[in-house]
Design a protein around this nucleic acid. Sequence first.
RNA 1: CGGGGAGUAGUUCAGAUGGCUAGAAUGCUGCUUUUGGGAAGCAGAGGUCGCAGGUUCAAGUCCUGUCUCCCCGACCA
Length: 577
Amino acid sequence: MKYSKLFGKTLRSVKKDIVLDSHRLLYQGGFIRELSAGRYEFLPLGLRVQQKIIDLIDKEMEKIGSQRMSIPILQPLKIWQKTNRDGVWGSSLMRLTDRNNTEFALSATGEGVVTEMVARSNPTYKDLPVTLHQFIMKFRDELRPRGGLIRVREFIMKDAYSYHTTEEDLMETYEDFHAAYTRIFDRLDLPDVYPVIADSGALGGAYSHEFQMISDAGEDKFVKCDTCDYAANVEKAVFERESVNEDQELKEYEVVELPAEVCTMKQLEEHYGLPPENYIKNVMYKAGDGTLIIATVTGNLDVNEVKLTNAVGKGPLEMADDEDLNSIGSKHGYLHSWGYDEHKDRIIYVVDLSLKKARNLYGGYKTDTTDPINVNYPRDFQADIEADIAESPEGAKCAQCKDGHLHIRKSIELGHIFKYDHFYTKAHDAKFVDKDGKNKYMWSGAYGIGIGRAMAASVEAHHDDAGIVWPAVIAPYHVHLVQLGDNAEITEYAESLYSKLREAGVEVLWDDRTDVSAGVKFADADLIGNPIRVVVSARGMDKGTVEVKKRGEQKSKDVKLDRAVEEVRKILEELLK
RNA sequence: CGGGGAGUAGUUCAGAUGGCUAGAAUGCUGCUUUUGGGAAGCAGAGGUCGCAGGUUCAAGUCCUGUCUCCCCGACCA
């Protein structure tokens, strides 16, 4: 490709608004443009990278026996309603109606449609297992797109679905995907990617792993043990509660005076002179049906909403507001862990496991002037649910090895694999005929990777001050051919090298511009980030050489004109290995 | 939706207390001189100041409404 003809040029300046390197470089380098919030145009360079990521993933899918297919983007809303996914997804799911007023959802994911498609094929045990995957646009009306391609409203996803006769067989495929994903992120040269135990969220099901890449550009958090292999999303991470005052005897419950202005955890620490794990902290949430949930943890911990949601089992929760607090006669900062007896029918008390390991706590029933001390659970108050509802704090003790400590890492979620069991197949009545002639529900799983996000993650991981440093497998072109000077000899040689390289299967972006300076060309080459740069110039022609340089390296190498193709091929082979 | 910020040339921005023909840089077009890390000169093109109302002799600037975008939270690949 001649750069002079390439649609989508580099830009000299970008908005101050742009905060992530990947966003800035992809935009500045001419890979993407934004149409509206979270909806991006992929320019030729960007699309080439995307296509390479797709090809790479497709190959790995093939290796584990998945077959590529594709389903429509408009899916009858009815299919979503069978699992109440339309309700769970809420306004994240884009909907529209056709001329007959039939309601459709824009594909946000494909479980329903694919499950019904497989079921309609009338499968028997001989047809299973079957694994299908596709690369199609996903539409999700996200609350807030952000960070360029990190979080968008439409994106190509590799989504795969598998169907099985038994749970063991499903697990086998699940593990195949686990391994394939590890290979994919490895091939993409994405460093620090960890499979972490995750919550399934709106997709449903009970068991899943996310593939998280450690990065400050990420919006996710997971914890990782510094001793064993335990890694989990903070929404799921289990950790050992530290004992509080275990050497003390249970002291007698007492009510002491406490000035009203002592309210925050910090003020309590100053007032009582004890560290935060000695206090009781209460937070109130509200379920969709109006039920209020009072969640109690020790003062050093925070309630994790996802954990609490799962513990309560009443659907999505939201933070209670002042009105809700007032409705039971409480107010902000004065929520009690017990005692709302006249409202008992609409309150669920949930205590975290931390309460079980703590003795002689302070608080839990603070009034304007008093505060209880030496509070002990369950001696002094009881709860409806005892559960793990606290978010794992930095440095918490690992529950798996009981030895190491859990550290919080900011991360980008690159992929997610789900073991659904019968969640979708039951709802969609997706059965197979087993050996014994009986109809049984298939077991199923699903597996996703966001292509654009992987592209952004790659840039986050591979760039320097001058621009992107693409791994060769997904670089838009293998070689950035820089022609300096426009005399006949140079142009002729550049052109012939361009053709020869292409004949040798090398992808070349030839900067043939004659109206810009050398500095501009070098800057653009660095910005775009192709892995090999070849410079053809008067300086070289005089010596009978061209310069060859890898993007990440400082020094270039002089190569004889007639050996240039060979040299490039050699370097490329190494890079693609 | 809650909180913070912003919409002016292709791009990035400046335009205080309302005031004449709306500016710069960069990019773009033409010519000339250049050609190894974002060259120089000359000449040009390029704007419904997000949109709709309003106040005023006069609105980019003030008022009301509205839309859009960015950043921080809840949702996800």
